Computed example of a mutant assay.
Amino acid sequence: MTDTTAQSPEPTSDAELVRLFNQINRGTLGEKMGIRIVEASAERIVATMPVEGNNQPYGLLHGGASVVLAETLGSIGAALHAGEGRIAVGLDINATHHRGARSGLVTGTATPLSLGRTLASYEVVISDDQGKRLCTSRITCLLRDAAPKAQ
């Protein structure tokens, strides 16, 4: 699962935080899948992802692509909640796929179910361009202190 380190410089605004996460996303699976963060806080994380390029042989959005989007959003939220000097490590993720999408952008919105000192759980709802729910996912991350950097 994702290991998201929350040791980035403190952003000065919501726009700066979104820019920072999109910059950190460079060279990752999320970038390859076209995931773009549009809103980020410990209470709400929103991103878009294109269906094109993330579909399965039948032309529908691949269920695994939805899970990658959900894990990306939940991990970012958990890292923000964990705070500086702590990391979020994914423990569990599940997804229920309600309907398919063949084109356009999907939007994932993560909101916390539980934010504690050692665990953070998020519900992630993925919707199509018309706002219809495609997938509901839940991710739980372990929050712990980051390992000291080797000198």
Rank of each mutant, 00 (worst) to 15 (best):
G77H: 03
T5R: 13
G104L: 05
I37G: 04
P57F: 01
L91C: 11
S8F: 15
H98P: 00
D145R: 09
R102D: 02
L20I: 01
A150V: 14
A40F: 02
S114H: 15
T136D: 12
Y58V: 14
Q130F: 00
E31N: 08
A79N: 14
I37S: 05
Y58Q: 14
A147R: 15
D145Q: 11
E52Q: 07
V67T: 08
A82Q: 04
A70C: 13
C135P: 00
N54M: 05
S137Q: 00
T2I: 07
G59P: 12
M33C: 08
E16F: 05
V51S: 12
S66P: 00
R19K: 13
S41F: 07
L134G: 08
Q7A: 15
D129A: 11
I93C: 03
V51Q: 06
G77W: 06
S103L: 03
E10G: 09
V18Q: 11
P57A: 06
L17I: 13
G59R: 13
G53K: 04
A101D: 11
E39L: 05
R36S: 06
G131D: 00
Q7F: 08
V46N: 11
I93N: 00
T12N: 04
G34H: 08
T5K: 08
I45V: 15
R26A: 13
E31R: 14
G77C: 10
A78G: 05
A110C: 04
A79K: 14
S75N: 01
S137N: 01
L61D: 08
Q7M: 04
G108K: 02
I24D: 01
G85C: 06
V125K: 02
G104A: 01
V38M: 15
H81A: 01
G27P: 03
T48M: 09
R44S: 08
E43I: 07
I93D: 02
